[in-house]
Simulated assay, not measured.
Amino acid sequence: MATRSDVIEDAPEGAPGSTTTPTPAPSATLGGEQKRSVEQITLLLFIAVPFLAMVAAVPLAWGWGVSWLDLGLLVFFYYLGCHGITIGFHRYFTHGSFKAKRPLRIALAVAGSMAVEGPLVRWVADHRKHHKFSDAEGDPHSPWRYGETVPALMKGLWWAHMGWMFDEEQTSQEKYAPDLIKDPALRAVSRQFILFTALSLFLPALVGGLVTMSWWGAFTAFFWGSLVRVALLHHVTWSINSICHAVGKRPFKSRDRSGNVWWLAVLSCGESWHNLHHADPTSARHGVLRGQVDSSARLIRWFEQLGWASDVRWPSKERIAARRTVEAEVADAG
Rank of each mutant, 00 (worst) to 15 (best):
D139E: 08
G287R: 05
T19L: 07
V121D: 06
V288T: 04
A152C: 13
K101Q: 11
T23D: 11
L153F: 03
R36A: 10
M1P: 13
H161P: 09
L52N: 03
P315K: 00
S296C: 02
W64H: 13
D280V: 13
G88W: 00
G31V: 00
M213A: 14
A333D: 05
R319F: 10
G334P: 00
D126V: 00
P16E: 05
W144Q: 15
W64F: 13
A111N: 00
N241A: 14
P22F: 08
W302T: 08
V110W: 04
D179I: 01
P16N: 06
G88M: 03
F166H: 08
L199S: 12
S272G: 11
L306N: 01
S18T: 15
D167Y: 14
S172D: 10
L227E: 08
I243T: 13
G63Y: 12
W64I: 04
L267C: 12
S67A: 07
W273I: 03
A333W: 09
W164Y: 09
V293H: 04
T171I: 03
L195G: 04
Q192G: 08
A136Y: 13
E117F: 09
D10A: 13
L180S: 02
V236W: 08
L45Y: 09
G96L: 01
T94S: 15
S190I: 03
T86M: 10
R91T: 02
V228R: 12
T86P: 12
P26E: 03
V211C: 01
V150I: 15
W123Y: 03
A152V: 11
K317F: 06
V124Q: 01
E13K: 11
T220S: 15
V189A: 00
E174Y: 00
Q305V: 05
D294S: 05
P184L: 12
L120P: 11
K249W: 09
V58P: 03
F98G: 02
K182G: 01
I85F: 08
W158S: 12
H277F: 09
F133G: 02
H131F: 15
A328D: 13
F89M: 12
L180E: 05
A284D: 06
I106L: 15
A109G: 11
A333N: 05
R36C: 00
F93V: 02
D332A: 15
H141N: 11
T171A: 07
T149N: 12
W262A: 07
L73F: 12
L232A: 10
Y78F: 09
M54K: 00
L43Y: 02
M1Y: 14
P12T: 11
A53H: 02
K129V: 03
L203W: 07
R257T: 14
V207A: 01
